[in-house]
Design a protein around this nucleic acid. Sequence first.
RNA 1: GCACCGGUGGCGAAGUGGCUAACGCGCAGGUCUGCAAAACCUGUAUUCGCGGGUUCAACCCCCGCCCGGUGCUCCA
Length: 492
Amino acid sequence: MTLRLFNTLTGQLDEIVPSDGKALRMYACGPTVYDYGHIGNFRTFLQVDVLRRYLKLTGMRMLHVMNITDVDDKIIRNASAAGVPIGDYTPRYVDAFFEDLDSLRVERPEQVARATEHIAQMVSLIQKLAEAGAAYKTDDGSWYFRLKAFPEYGKLSKKDLSGMEDGARVDVDEYEKDSARDFALWKAAKPGETAWDTPIGRGRPGWHIECSAMAMEYLGESFDLHAGGEDLMFPHHENEIAQSETVTHKPLARHWMHVRFLLVDGRKMSKSEGNFYTLRDLLLKGYKASAIRLALISVPYRHQLNFTFDGLTEATNAIDRLRTFHQRVTKGSFPAGSNPALQAAAGKARTEYMAALANDLNTAEARAPIFDLIRTANTAIDQGQFLAGDRDAILAVLADFDAVFDVLEDRDDEPTRRALAWAEQSGRMAEVAPELLARQSLTDEAIDALVAERTLAKRQRNFARADQIRNELAEKGIVLEDAKDGVRWKRK
RNA sequence: GCACCGGUGGCGAAGUGGCUAACGCGCAGGUCUGCAAAACCUGUAUUCGCGGGUUCAACCCCCGCCCGGUGCUCCA
């Protein structure tokens, strides 16, 4: 089913199809690596992940490029505060970023592009802009984009800047921009700052130019889809369009997708508000990576998501239900045959699921038929009407669900252990929730041993001892389930 | 100030001009169980911020108001 996705440029739902008939060429703005990523960053990356996973599920191939901004003012500021060159400062955060993406099971783009490795392409683009009369150099050696050279400026964010002329501009000061709204393409080197010697002078790139240069390098002058957080719409994406289209006279991207910001406890997340969380903060509080993933993708990307700890608990419990059912179907043994009612229910669930996602990636709506199917199938199992031939039909629907949501398999231990190791190594153990330490204090083997002891005690009808073991485990966040075919346990 | 988005049950959150207002979580009762857990069943909004209007019919369309959020500057 063809995805209909809201296009910021046209203001309507447009179909997503590869213009070359082969792979969807997509550019998504990546991180600026000056610190650890926060959950707001990851909501955007997760929603882009939902997009690409859904498209792949429909059989589309992807050519997805993501930039890494590894030179900018904040990086220079932080690196200089740390007393190291930026080349020594950023790798740690690049690594951390990819580690966090792994924790959240965000797929890697086909191509990752670092700003510092594409200086030549940026310089070349600035030269072309200069030839076109759209770029000019100021006396300090910086280059600016002349906004007047691009009359369509504002078409993405629907801003009409025509009324915002600078008024009486006194004679052009050679040290200043022609117009207040002109933006930097290239910043002249200041003493001690990282800089490149190039044909247009010694300096470093402005922020916007990297995306134009790298997008065109890997995707061509015009490509299918450009995505990013809503804040990037203006001025970043608007500037990208201006820089690129002034040179190519072609639309940079046909389709623009913007992910809305999240709120935390109903307010904008900010360090000064005290509601600022990195992924690592949450893992150290004991929340599972899968729950964070589900919480951040369950509200459709165009809606404001209010992030709360209650919401994470909700997601944790929802995942529990999904996984319990998945295990039940996978491991259970059922009578031969197949149940037409269940087959039909599976088919209906899959159709509704795919249709919901095709409708502007409505993840909230897409969950509903999956949970409906779970209830139907659970009822059938309880009544002995779930037959062996139904297993594959149900599992196939779950597989499609998981192709996008990716929370069914319990892979939560690794991110948590990684976060703990990081906390230890960076002296943050004080931030670790005691419950988490308790939960991680027992190895799988130790738990299995206790469970075996309890099973024996139960067989001997020594329920006091059996309950004692169960309570001990419960205190450490281990929950037991006595099923017909044995005991299951899980870390809460 | 200008612009945009949203206000649906205890919480989160879909949704449509007319069918019982999805789904998840939570809570209460029941079935099952040594007791639990899991699972299932039943109940949890006669009602969709407030006031008008259009319509045979509005939560969904229009107008006004109130509240919350966001953008207009670096920001995912």
